[in-house]
Simulated assay, not measured.
Amino acid sequence: MQTLQSLLAHLPKHGADVDAQKAAQAVLKYFNNAAHLHHEDEEQNLLPMLQATARGADATLLAELAPVILAGHEQMDRDWTILKSPLEQIANGAGSTLSASDVARFCDAYAAHMVMEETNIATMAKRLFSPEQMAQLGSAMQVRRGITPALPESQVPEQQAAAVTPAVVDGVVLADLRLDYGRASLTENDVLDDPIAQFGKWFEEAIHAKVNEPNAMSVATVDADGKPSSRIVLIKQFDQRGFTWYTNYESQKGRQLRANPHAALLFFWSELERQIRIEGKVVQTAAEESDQYFYSRPVKSQIAAIASQQSAPIANREQMEVNFDAAAAVGGDHPLRPAQWGGYRLDPERIEFWQGRRSRFHDRIVYLKQADGSWVKQRLQP
């Protein structure tokens, strides 16, 4: 900033002399490279790590500051675009004019950003981050700048190690695909006594951290012959009764659940390096609950549920569209929930919380439901 402001004062007296050209070159070098990398540090590492770690007042403050910081990045990028062209002309000796208002606007925005970062963001990170998190953050910043990190390559998500053995997929040996984890830890004292409440706590943190589709879960079922299958569905409700989703009762999973009502759910939130495994017995929800959810859906989604015989073969997409149009013509704006469509609720018997750690030495805390309905928790080895 000082170099840019000094250049602004220098130009009216000396024009684009050698000193002015060197100053312009220095400003261009920094803001074309280092400043952009600094923005990426915040957007791709620092802020997401803080959002996954901050709690209480820190989380509230971060929720207020993060949008301001991101908007500041965009504003500084726009202001820099305005300054860049005249600076390039000065650096080449082809121009000698800078707008004082453009320089002032850019410098003011940059100074305000630095104050916010140093006063709040950086101090919060130093206070909240573990030594492992600080090391991972520093290594990610080094990789972004082409510097060999202090951590082993396997512990730096931003670094892709080159394959040294014959390729399997796109030049990458599948056995070498691994990321080491280090955002957080999980102890017996970290988790709540009630696993449903603990699930709610982690789910809220996943939403706060802007995890991609935190409500997406794998549902694994087994048919009458003991053959398993799994698919991704969206959880729609969870409470002390269990975990609820909606589907067609005549689908593959519906038929399998009739034959074997036990199932397993899996949530994986890579952004937080967490997964939750849930196992138990599945029952259909009451018709009133299925109605309530069905009629809360968009009308076209209701029609799609009516038109589709889920998991059944069909000749082509065109036939599906014909079926949809036919269902829409009958149902109109108020289609009725078909009897074969409704909810399933898994009553959990086992819930495991998994937090990724370095060197595959992960943290695992499992809750087991007892005969009286109470829960016992214990640590499992990774």
Rank of each mutant, 00 (worst) to 15 (best):
E158N: 03
Y246F: 12
Q355E: 12
L87D: 02
L368D: 15
L151S: 01
S229W: 12
R337I: 08
A371D: 15
L98N: 11
P166G: 01
Y367V: 15
A220I: 11
P12L: 03
R145V: 01
L336F: 09
I314N: 04
H38Y: 02
R364W: 13
R364L: 14
A9S: 13
Q378E: 15
V299T: 08
D194Q: 01
A35I: 00
S359D: 15
I207Y: 06
P338L: 08
P382W: 04
Q25E: 14
S101L: 12
K281H: 09
F203P: 04
W354R: 05
D19T: 14
E289G: 02
V168S: 03
Q370S: 14
L98K: 13
A26K: 05
E213G: 07
L87C: 02
A26N: 05
G356C: 07
G93A: 13
W202K: 09
T53P: 05
T148C: 02
E64Q: 07
P166H: 01
Q302S: 01
Q155S: 06
Q275W: 05
Q21C: 11
L61T: 06
E118Q: 02
A287N: 10
T97N: 13
E132I: 10
N189D: 12
I121S: 14
A371Y: 03
T3H: 08
A175P: 00
A59Q: 13
T244K: 03
G332P: 04
Y246P: 01
G356E: 09
V164N: 02
V299W: 01
R78D: 06
D363F: 12
I365F: 03
R350V: 08
A197G: 00
Q275N: 07
V222Q: 01
R127F: 09
V330K: 14
A34F: 12
P348L: 09
A94Y: 08
Q155N: 07
G280W: 09
P152N: 09
F106D: 13
G343F: 11
L368T: 15
L151R: 01
C107Y: 01
L11K: 13
Y293C: 05
K126S: 15
D325T: 12
V143G: 05
R105L: 05
I276A: 04
P48I: 07
L70K: 05
N45K: 06
W375L: 12
D239C: 01
Q340N: 11
A34Y: 11
V366G: 12
Q89R: 04
W341R: 04
Q142F: 06
R78A: 09
P131A: 11
F294Y: 15
V173W: 03
I90D: 03
A307P: 04
A287S: 14
H39M: 02
W269M: 02
Y110I: 04
L8Y: 05
E158V: 04
A307F: 03
G226I: 15
A26C: 02
I82R: 09
A111S: 00
Q89I: 00
A59F: 03
F324K: 09
A304E: 11
R78N: 03
R357Q: 13
P149I: 10
